[in-house]
């Protein structure tokens, strides 16, 4: 297992890609992960599909729904992770809602995730207040439990999350659900600075990031850029046009990487 911390290196901003496991099919996930790493990703989030993804916009909702129709269960996600992690070349995380994890059993899930090469977990409906069981189980297996902060988080909550998050802190760029956006929020830089003042963990910004220009803007202030819905759209468009989704997705990632690398980084 590669620890999440490996993704954050001096002189380079981390590019984090989100994929729904089994979308458009399991073979695609197996091919996409190493290809995205090769194209410049430093970390890949593997989304475990859930029937009720209430923090997600239409793109990830649809991908999750289709993956579920293809029989992608948490157990299948673990199998796919185990198969792809030796070839990934970068750390892998699971992103998934709490109910399937709770149903699996937090301790059993973390044991199996670690064995499958998963270095971290992001659970969007599990704030630190309810996270004790999973946090204990994750820590026992050396897995980072990544917590989220939002522009609405007041100073006390920023301090709470900074005290408990491991791996990195996921900054939700806007008040809203996941989904590609034409514009990032105006207060983004300010939000990152507010968290930076109290947190020592790397800070990654996600939700809405869609274009190289947006990735560059985020990279100028944060330690990492997370791209999800737009990547799934690129994959979906390629598939419907009969083009190779893996090649198209890799090209999209290279575009983001270049834009991020053009931002001067203090050594």
């Amino acid at each position: 297992m590669r620890p999440v911390g490996e993704a954050f290196r001096k002189g380079r901003k981390a590019l984090v890609a989100y994929l729904t496991v089994g979308y458009p099919d399991p073979e695609a996930t197996l091919a996409l992960v190493p290809a995205l790493a090769e194209a410049g990703c430093d970390l890949v989030e593997l989304g475990i599909p859930f029937s009720d993804p209430l923090a997600d916009g239409t793109t990830i909702q649809r991908a999750s729904y289709e993956a579920l129709l293809r029989g992608i269960t948490p157990r299948r996600c673990l199998e796919i992770a185990a198969e792809v992690s030796p070839r990934a070349g970068v750390p892998l995380l699971f992103m998934g809602y709490y109910n399937p994890i709770m149903h699996y059993g937090p301790a059993a899930f973390c044991a199996d995730a670690a064995a499958a090469g998963i270095g971290g977990l992001i659970v969007p409906d599990l704030p630190p207040e309810e996270g004790e069981a999973l946090q204990t189980a994750a820590a026992a297996r050396g897995i980072s439990l990544v917590y989220l902060l939002s522009p609405t988080s007041p100073p006390e909550r920023i301090a709470t999350v900074a005290g408990q998050a491991s791996g990195f802190i996921y900054l939700v760029s806007l008040t809203g659900v996941t989904g590609a956006r034409a514009e990032l929020s105006e207060g983004l830089e300010d939000f990152v600075a507010r968290v930076r003042a109290v947190a020592s963990q790397p800070l990654c910004v996600g939700f809405g990031v869609s274009t190289p220009a947006q990735a560059a803007r985020v990279a100028a202030v944060a330690d990492g850029v997370i791209v999800g819905s737009r990547l799934l759209q690129v994959i979906e468009e390629a598939a419907t046009q009969g083009r190779d989704p893996v090649g198209v997705a890799a090209a999209f990632i290279r575009g983001l990487r270049e834009a991020m690398d053009s931002v001067p980084v203090p050594e």
Partner: peptide
């Protein structure tokens, strides 16, 4: 904390916690 025995609580995205 909003718990009835093991039930209840706040399992929501961070944005809603405040």
């Amino acid at each position: 904390r909003g718990h009835f025995g093991p039930y209840g609580g706040k399992f929501v995205p961070e944005t809603l916690m405040p």
